[in-house]
Computed example of a mutant assay.
Amino acid sequence: MLQLQKRYGAMLLVLPGLLFLAVLFVWPVGRLVATSFGGWEDPFAQYERILTSTVYVRVLGRTFLLSAQVVALCLLLGYPLAYVLSRVGPLAKVVIVLCVLIPFWTNLLVRSYGWIILLNPQGALNGLLELVGLGPSPVPLVYNSTGVLIGMTQIMLPYCVLPLAAVMSRIDPSLENAARSLGASPVSAFLKVYFPLTLPGVFAGCLLVFMISLGFFVVPAILGGPGDILLAQLIEFNINNTLNWPFAAALSTLLLVATLLIYLIGDRFFDLGRLWGAR
């Protein structure tokens, strides 16, 4: 009897959360997928249109390519920052965390328009490049893919730094010292001992950045140009302008499926469960 009470008591505690997810997540996503198939006459018509049209295939490719570029930049910038964050003292750690999180807490629109001020032809960055004599004047840094890449990288950087720092903080620094005492060079000790131990954080950070970047809308819409339309912008256009909801639902379903597949592949082959101690 006591075991039954514990079992059903736990189920009652979980039930409100399950109902919340079912009503506000599972049901809308199910309706979205159902809408994407349209009628019974030709349920795959919208998907055939996406995959057979050069324009839409280019949008899909551009979205995945830009997301991969954001991942590469976030990893390049975030790995050294997370390494320093895991090694410094408490006061310096607080300062670094604040520097990482304060932009993260700033409104997305404010950050996007702030980048327009910095990157426009008369902006501060072009003025600096002109002062040091690097590149043509002015350098096209906004209303193109470069501006989108810069804006998205700045926004997504915390999603890469925080998982990396969480993994690095659990690595015993004496492991590198032991490798050095056995004759390994600093580079060899880092590549063969330290870096492999940080791979769960690397994969988790890259996965988060990539999945979230696939659905970005605000930054590409503000900082991008007419030839830099991404998948989220195409979905918005079909919902609000052409009112083609089945086609927008098909695009959204493809985005959802791609995100789920990327997560499942990452969890299956890179053992992301180790990041939170699941296994």
Rank of each mutant, 00 (worst) to 15 (best):
Y143F: 15
L214C: 09
T198N: 10
Q233G: 14
R180I: 08
L157S: 05
V100G: 01
T242Q: 11
C160P: 00
F37N: 00
V148L: 06
F195K: 05
L255C: 11
T52L: 10
L19P: 08
L234H: 08
K192I: 06
I155L: 13
A258R: 05
A248K: 05
V218L: 14
P103D: 12
L182H: 10
G183H: 09
G30S: 14
A165I: 03
L76E: 07
V26F: 14
L254E: 04
V33E: 00
V14G: 01
Q46G: 01
L125Q: 07
C99S: 14
F203K: 03
G201P: 13
S137T: 10
L261N: 10
S67K: 12
C74A: 13
G38E: 01
V167K: 04
L77R: 09
L134V: 15
S252Q: 03
G123M: 03
W245H: 05
A166Y: 08
L164T: 09
F270C: 15
T253W: 03
N177L: 13
L118P: 04
D42E: 14
G38R: 01
L32N: 05
A232T: 06
S53Y: 09
A179I: 11
C206V: 12
I239Q: 11
N144G: 04
G89T: 04
Q46E: 13
K192C: 14
G273Q: 06
A248M: 07
N244R: 12
N240E: 09
T52I: 02
W105S: 10
I239S: 06
R279K: 15
P121A: 14
K93H: 05
A34E: 09
F216D: 07
W245S: 00
A10L: 15
L24A: 08
G183Y: 09
R87A: 11
L75K: 09
N126I: 14
F44D: 07
V187Q: 05
V202W: 06
G183K: 11
L24P: 02
W115A: 03
G61L: 11
I117G: 00
S174A: 06
N144Q: 06
P163L: 10
D267Y: 02
F25Q: 08
V71F: 04
S213Y: 12
T146G: 01
N244E: 12
L230S: 00
V94W: 12
G183V: 13
T54R: 15
Q46D: 03
L24G: 13
P158H: 07
T242K: 07
Q3T: 14
R268W: 13
L131W: 15
T63D: 08
E48D: 09
P140K: 12
L231M: 12
G39K: 04
V94Q: 14
L254W: 00
Y83T: 02
K6V: 10
K6W: 08
M211Q: 15
L207F: 10
V193K: 02
P196C: 13
V219K: 00
G215C: 09
A232Y: 01
L214Q: 11
P158F: 03
D42N: 15
L91N: 02
L175D: 02
I222C: 04
N177W: 10
V187C: 07
I96T: 03
